[in-house]
Nucleic acid binder design. Structure first.
Lengths: 241, 241
DNA sequence: ACCTGAACACCGTTCAAGT
DNA sequence: ACCTGAACACCGTTCAAGT
């Protein structure tokens, strides 16, 4: 998990608790694990310090000694989940496919933990796992022969692109569940379709015409189009000079 | 503003208040305007129903008669701000530039109201202004000769792409201000650079090597790269078949 | 070194009651 | 038709006090 060699970034919102020995029922790791469990089961709105304390059989105030604040806890949760992202070792001959694989892995993790992208907003992920993913992704981009500048811009854009897609895909949260069940999602899509189809065609010729496409538009296909366009365009730019 | 011809979508979280006559100091429009003013001045975390009531010289409970809930209010705020997005009339010869202009306008609005993208998360924007923007964007895509299917996928991806970029760009919120001031942003960037540069080079050869690039990476350039790649790739796909 | 209960300063929302 | 104060059920966080 945490790599003890690497000091945390200076803006980390966490108290210094280097001297932790025995593994007690309540510890930083246990709190993070419990938080992720709660988030996976009940979604972002269910996570409160009081509720999490209950879950661990402790008072809410106890948590503050370990994680400093709710914000600090979410920093830890974010890095823990970024740890689930898989980044292949760079192979210059396959760098484009490898970049796509990285993007797909990122999307998979974001779908598995639908609150993840929302937690990441406003945070600069620089925990040990984030560093590993960043380093690995940059390695692939450099293996592709991108200039230093384009490698960094491309890396930042890849994250934005995948996050933009998944924040949309996972944005709708149910009260009780982290994500609306598929049939509910379909119902929302159907309602949107019917509403679009009911608009006055003189004013909205294109929308009414395309109402059916909206309902059947496939997110998997859409994601593949996105990373195809992105990786292809990046490669083209790299080759251009 | 609101177009009375178009009925609201069925999932709109607003009470039906069709019979509104005199323009009083407190009205749906006045509440939305006050909310946007407050958000512009102090950011997303400053908006509470109590605070907004104060701002309008009314009790918080009074707002509920007009906007139903905070969620309903944010639906209205979102559509009002989408109204600031400019979409050019479709010109088949210039559709690629027009798509980029639409994306740039979207980004400008999101920078002017840095909380906007966060408000839009989890909402399907289907107010009158959103319909206008969607119809206009689809018109440009159809003018470009895209198939119905690719036009819809491309439209959805364009939004995701721009939002992914701007949610990153506007993600850091200050307590007192809607957005960190530029010098604070630079300080954050410098801290990140220094931290990256301080990492062990054996473990992070690419990050340490590229630390400088991270600090100087220009968001305007990055955005142009993004829409270049995206629009170009979309055109290529459209031409491919 | 760790955990606690109680308190502070907030939230969104409801509702009976007013005009 | 519109607005109110008071109440309900929550928040994150602090802090003196405990062990």
């Amino acid at each position: 998990m945490a790599d003890p060699e690497i000091p945390p970034p200076p803006w980390q919102r966490l108290p210094d608790r280097s001297s932790r020995k025995r593994r007690e029922p309540i510890s930083r790791d246990a709190i993070v694990a419990a938080a992720i469990g709660l988030l996976d089961r009940e979604g972002l709105s269910a996570l409160s310090m009081r509720r999490l304390g209950e879950e661990l059989g402790a008072g809410a105030a106890s948590l503050y000694w370990h994680v400093g604040s709710k914000d600090g806890l979410l920093d830890l949760v974010l890095d823990e989940l970024i740890g689930e992202v898989e980044v292949p070792d760079p192979d210059p001959a396959r760098w484009q496919q490898q970049l796509k694989e990285t993007a797909r892995s990122q999307r998979r993790v974001s779908l598995r933990h639908p609150y993840l992208v929302r937690v990441s907003i406003g945070r600069i992920p620089m925990g040990p796992n984030a560093l590993r993913v960043t380093e690995g992704t940059l390695a692939i981009l450099r293996a592709g022969g991108l200039s230093p500048r384009l490698a960094v811009q491309g890396y930042l854009l890849l994250i934005d692109t995948v996050n933009g897609f998944t924040v949309d895909e996972t944005g709708v949260e149910d009260g009780g569940a982290p994500q609306l069940p598929p049939e509910e999602l379909q119902k929302v899509a159907d309602m949107a379709r019917d509403y679009i189809a009911s608009l006055p065609p003189e004013q909205f010729p294109n929308m009414t015409d395309l109402a059916g496409e909206f309902a059947f538009s496939d997110p998997d296909e859409r994601f593949e189009i996105l990373i195809d366009i992105f990786v292809d365009g990046l490669a083209r730019r790299a080759a251009a000079r």
